[in-house]
């Protein structure tokens, strides 16, 4: 990986304060913020969720809501040109797949850094993104 400005940088976020700080870090890698792709992955809804049963929420409506929520959090004009992509599924797979799709040069991801038994058992999303990704991954730790 060279330290030249990147054309496509993927930044997975989960709306926590910390994951937004990964966004700040990622801005250093691009000349123009339009080269940044924010990715937020929604889990599959339970088929028994009342809103799903009655057809009142679906992935489309969830995408709209989530994008609005993220735009609200990123109200600063400096974020305006960033593209936001809302995906549905298993986060590490979706992030890696998306990065490949847009032919990303870099993924900048935060890690909450689970410790102890929980870490051993399930690891972190960041870890699995590192394993699945086709491109370099920068992990920002707490």
């Amino acid at each position: 990986m060279s330290w030249l400005p990147k054309k496509n940088v993927v930044v997975p976020i989960d709306l926590s304060e910390f994951s937004l700080s990964a966004l700040d870090a990622s801005m250093e890698f691009v000349e123009d913020t339009s080269h940044l792709h924010i990715v937020h992955v929604l889990r599959e809804m339970s088929p028994m969720e009342p809103g799903v049963v009655w057809g009142e929420i679906d992935d489309e409506s969830r995408r709209v809501h989530a994008e609005q929520a993220i735009r609200k959090r990123l109200a600063d004009p400096k974020f305006d040109k960033i593209e936001i992509h809302i995906l549905v599924g298993n986060p590490p797979n979706q992030i890696a797949r998306f990065a490949q799709e847009v032919d990303a040069d870099l993924i900048v991801i935060h890690s909450h850094g689970r410790t102890g038994a929980a870490h051993l058992l399930i690891g972190s999303v960041a870890e699995r993104v590192v394993r699945h990704a086709h491109c370099p991954v920068l992990v920002i730790r707490d």
Binding site: L15, H40, M45, G51, I57, R62, R63, A66, A69, I70
Partner: peptide
């Protein structure tokens, strides 16, 4: 109580 203390998720689900 369920309505008083529910979590409204970013995607609009509850």
């Amino acid at each position: 109580l369920a309505l008083m203390y529910r979590k409204v998720n970013a995607d609009g689900s509850i």
